[in-house]
Simulated assay, not measured.
Amino acid sequence: MKFGVVVFPGSNCDQDTVYVIKEILEQEVVTLWHKETDFDPNIDVIILPGGFSYGDYLRSGALAKFSPIMSKVIDFANNGGYVFGICNGFQILCESGLLPGALLHNTNQKFICKNIYLVPDSKETALTKYLPRERALKIPIAHGEGRYYADKETLAKMRINGQILFRYSDENGVVSESANPNGSVENIAGVCNERHNVFGMMPHPERASDDELGNTDGRLIFESLIRYIKEMND
C-alpha cells in the first residue's frame, strides 16, 4: 500500500507518522507539500498529521482548509479514497466539511498532553474492525482544541450510521464523564463520515506504535486500516 502524508506549515507530527508507516508498518509513503495541486494517483491513503497548521491562527484547521492540496484531498475523499486526520488533521477535516461536527477549546481552557484510554464504538470501520474488543487502548493526546461537538440531530444520525469511531474511557474500558479529558460530547474521541472512508481522531496513534516507547496500542489502529483496505481490494 502507498500512503501520502500532507505537510502544512506548522505540522510537527508528519515525520513521526512517516517513520511509523515506513519503518514500523513497512509500507510505502511519500510526503505531500501543502502547495501541491496534484499527487500520485496510486496513493491509497492520505494522512493529515498533527501539529499547528498555520500556527492555529483564527481557529485550528481553519486556514489549512484553504491550502491548494486540500481541494485535491477533498476530491480524493469524494471519490472514495481513504483519508485519516490525526489531531490537527482531524480539525482540518472538520473545517473542510469532510467530517461532521467541530473541535472546540478544551473545557478547562488548557493544553492537555497525557496518555488517555479509549474504546472503539463502531466496530466495522477500517480503523476499528480488527481492534481487540477485550480491553481499552492507551493512546496519548496533545491538544488545546480537542472538545468534539455536534448537535443532537447530527449525533443521532452518526450513531445510526456507525460514524462514532472511539470514545474516551478509563483503563477498564468504562466510558464515563470522569474519563473524558476535554469535555467532548458523549466522550467522542474520533469519528468518520457517512461513507466510512474519511476518519478523524484527536489521540495520536503514531506516538504509540514503536516498541521503544513501551506502548504499541496505536499501531493496532494503523494495522486495522491496512488490513481492511487490503481485504477490500482482494
Rank of each mutant, 00 (worst) to 15 (best):
I164E: 03
N108S: 11
T107R: 13
I112H: 06
A150E: 11
N161Q: 15
N172F: 12
R135A: 06
N106S: 04
L104N: 04
H143Q: 13
S122I: 12
R135Y: 14
H143K: 05
T128S: 07
E194K: 12
A150W: 12
G146F: 07
T128W: 00
T128K: 03
I188D: 06
E134C: 01
E124G: 14
V174E: 14
L127R: 09
K129E: 15
D170H: 10
D170T: 05
I188N: 10
R195N: 15
S122F: 07
S169D: 01
E134K: 01
N182H: 05
S122V: 14
Y148M: 02
S122A: 15
G183D: 11
E186R: 02
G183H: 10
A156I: 08
A142C: 01
N187Y: 07
T125L: 03
R147T: 01
A150G: 10
G101M: 02
V191M: 03
D170M: 10
L127I: 13
E194R: 05
P181D: 09
N197F: 02
N197L: 02
E171I: 13
S122L: 08
R147F: 03
L118H: 10
G183M: 12
N106L: 06
C113R: 08
K157R: 14
N115A: 15
P181A: 04
V119C: 03
N193G: 07
I188M: 05
L155I: 15
K129G: 09
Y130G: 00
V119P: 05
V191Q: 08
T154P: 03
E177P: 00
K123P: 12
I116A: 13
T107G: 10
D170R: 04
N180D: 03
Y130I: 02
R135L: 09
F111T: 09
L104G: 01
V174P: 01
I116E: 15
I139M: 11
N182L: 01
Y130D: 03
N106A: 04
N187E: 10
N180K: 05
L127V: 12
P140K: 09
P120T: 06
T128C: 07
R133S: 15
A102Y: 09
L127S: 06
S122E: 04
I112G: 00
V174Y: 07
D170Y: 10
E153R: 12
L165I: 04
I164T: 03
E186T: 02
S178F: 08
I160H: 15
I164M: 05
V174N: 13
V191H: 06
N106V: 01
E134G: 04
S169E: 01
E153G: 13
E134Q: 02
S178Q: 11
P140N: 04
Y130Q: 01
K157V: 14
G162V: 08
P140H: 03
Q109W: 11
L155N: 05
Y149L: 09
A179D: 11
